[in-house]
Design a protein around this nucleic acid. Structure first.
Length: 594
DNA sequence: GTCCTGAAAGAAC
DNA sequence: TTCTGACAAATTCGG
DNA sequence: CCGAATTTGTCAGAAGTTCTTTCAGGAC
């Protein structure tokens, strides 16, 4: 199958945003695709080579791909980066350079889907010393024999920014229409996808074995299930009425989600949220899990870092456990607990379809029967009937170092892969007007990419140090802006553009464009963290660390009424940092819970 | 050759 | 993780 | 009661901090 068929279809897709039209184009392609290639075409349109859980990555992104483009079309990498800044899309840069070069090219070998896929696979599987050059060369060769349209999508694919307006669900729609002539069958496909987490597999199964085989897909221990997700809501009142005035509220822990599988041979495997194997990282929770009284099971929980007293620690601490080497030392230095909150399968009984209350009961019974409960506990859960109960529990959860609550519908089954209102997450920063906002000065910016080409996509912000009369950086922000905001702010800032970083700005990070500190933005964030790269409050809490913001977002307000010197000061950031370090002792927690 | 450092990529939230 | 924008589907409104 | 207008829901793609790993390239 010629790769040009795919490239042309992709090109047509980028020109529309209508989902129905997008599916129609995909259907056309799938109809032209030989059955043996359906799975590969599915992966490719998802922007992948393999399902996530295999953890095979291309290993090339912006910088490396720029080199390959340079090599293929004889251009300096710097020049390419420069074009990239302007267009916001490396694929478009490649297409342009390719068409310039095409007159000189003697012959371009025809690319097929098979050959492209296998070269990309080789790229992904290359490793070791010298591999960078090999990657660049392989991609350059592909580009060299590609048409400009093909080059565009090869580059977009490799950088992980296909930008077709199509992802998993649209592919499923298209598969349903292509092979069953009925879009309604997408539900069945979706179910199979959620249980196998492998779109290419589902596509292949449908194309070659038919809908019956799809219906036969079951939850299986050792095969990761796409995790159920929660929708967010702003107030306890909204949540409780959504839940019909009865629900279970659980602490929302600030750690890493884990899906644990045990098979009949006794082996326990841990999967991350993106379903990669992380068993080795959390060996210390495997022992307890293995002792749960069941031959096979799938359970879910959140691993959280704890201190010597067993109190929850911030996410940053847990990050030290995301490693491959020095595991024994890490286990000692950064102990964790696995907090169980759900069960999907026990001894070939699929509890995934059971309502929450039933699943919770099964989970509790499993847990009670465990021989060793080391590093393992149940997520605290409580039935709630009104908003005040939710808010009260929220306070306790925050005081114990959690992020908030997840409120769960008592009747709902486990909806794999779905974000819906059966689970609702509730964090303090969602509540309008409750969380403190911060006013920060814009000192730099980066050019926007993709749909944000032509305006700035993110701004570098600083707090005011009134003692030194200097602006010290503390975060970048790139979310919360409407298109119009971005347009307006970008133009306004252009008036304050400087050639160099202003001497009044203290920054370790680079910005593509620097500004005179003038414009003040209102920002809201979920937390202040200790940062290795930002300079606000540097060394004040810990040597070498400043303050940064976690999940910063623009509130929509430009503070025209504030001079840059009136913005939030470094001292105030420090006070806010200290205020958030609050944790109840264990006994206090228990009394609050009951 | 070996060791160190820094840039790039990827994945958790 | 957060956020906005564009459709599509569902629901309400007005003649 | 029907078609138009409005609301709601779903999907995709912009963007954040921080941590570890991998590899290139320089120093010795």
């Amino acid at each position: 199958m010629d790769f040009s068929i795919l490239a042309e279809a992709f090109d047509r897709m980028t020109k529309t945003s209508s989902r129905t039209e997008l599916t129609a184009i995909l259907v056309e392609v799938l109809k032209k695709t030989p059955k043996s290639l359906v799975s590969k075409v599915s992966y490719l349109t998802q922007g992948k080579l393999f399902p996530d859980f295999l953890g095979i990555e291309i290993g090339m992104a912006e910088k490396t791909v720029s080199k390959a483009i340079g090599k293929a079309y004889s251009f300096e990498a710097d020049r390419i980066q420069e074009l990239f800044r302007k267009t916001g899309d490396l694929g478009d840069v490649a297409a342009e350079l390719s068409s310039k070069k095409s007159q000189q090219r003697l012959s371009s070998g025809k690319l097929t889907v098979e050959s492209v896929y296998s070269t990309l696979e080789e790229i992904a599987k290359t490793s070791g010393s010298g591999s960078s050059v090999v990657r660049v060369n392989k991609l350059a060769m592909l580009l060299d024999s590609a048409s400009s349209l093909e080059a565009k999508f090869l580059v977009r694919f490799v950088t992980g920014k296909l930008r077709l307006g199509v992802a998993d669900f649209t592919v499923l729609d298209a598969l349903a229409v292509t092979f069953t002539d009925d879009k309604k069958n997408r539900d069945k496909l979706e179910n199979a996808y959620n249980l196998t987490s492998d779109l290419g597999y589902v596509a292949d199964l449908l194309a070659n074995k038919g809908l019956k085989a799809i219906g036969a897909v079951r939850v299986t221990a050792s095969k990761p299930v796409r995790p159920m997700l929660a929708e967010r809501m702003e107030t306890a009142e909204l949540i409780i009425s959504q839940m019909n005035h009865e629900a279970a509220a659980e602490y929302k822990l600030d750690g890493e989600r884990v899906q644990a599988h045990k098979v009949r041979s006794g082996e326990v495997t841990l999967f991350s949220r993106r379903l990669e194997q992380i068993t080795d990282q959390y060996r210390d929770v495997v022992e307890g899990l293995g002792s749960l009284p069941a031959k096979e099971f799938i359970v879910e929980g959140e691993v959280v870092a704890i201190d010597w007293e067993g109190k929850y620690l911030p996410f940053q601490e847990l990050m030290h456990r995301r490693r491959k080497y020095d595991l024994d030392a890490a286990m000692k230095n950064y102990p964790v607990v696995l907090n169980l909150f759900d069960v999907l399968l026990v001894d070939s009984h699929e509890v995934i379809e059971e309502p929450y209350e039933k699943r919770r009961a099964v989970l509790e019974k499993l847990f009670e029967g465990a021989k060793t409960k080391n590093n393992m506990m149940l997520v605290p859960a409580k039935k709630v009937k009104d908003a005040s109960e939710i808010d009260a529990l929220m306070e306790v959860s925050l005081a114990s170092g959690c992020e908030g609550l997840v409120v769960k519908n008592l009747e709902s089954s486990y909806k794999a892969g779905a974000r819906g209102y059966a689970w609702i997450k509730y964090k303090p920063e969602y509540r309008p007007g409750v969380r403190d906002t911060i006013d920060l000065v814009v000192v730099g910016a980066n050019h926007g990419m993709g749909r944000r080409a032509g305006v700035y996509g993110a701004f570098l912000l600083a707090a005011y140090d009134d003692e030194a009369d200097v602006f010290r950086t503390t975060t970048k922000v790139g979310t919360g802006f409407s298109d119009a905001d971005l347009e307006k702010i970008s133009r306004e800032l252009d008036a304050h553009k400087t050639k160099e970083k202003s001497p009044r700005v203290d920054a370790k990070v680079e910005a593509e464009v620097w500004f005179e500190p003038k414009v003040v933005m209102e920002i809201i964030a979920s937390e202040i963290t200790l940062s290795p790269i930002y300079t606000a409050g540097l060394d004040q809490i810990r040597q070498g660390a400043g303050f940064a913001l976690r999940f910063p977002k623009f509130t929509g307000k430009i503070r025209d009424d504030k001079a840059p010197e009136d913005s939030t000061t470094v001292k105030e950031l420090m006070e806010m940092y200290q205020k958030q370090v609050r944790q109840l002792k264990k006994e206090e927690l228990e009394t609050a819970e009951s």
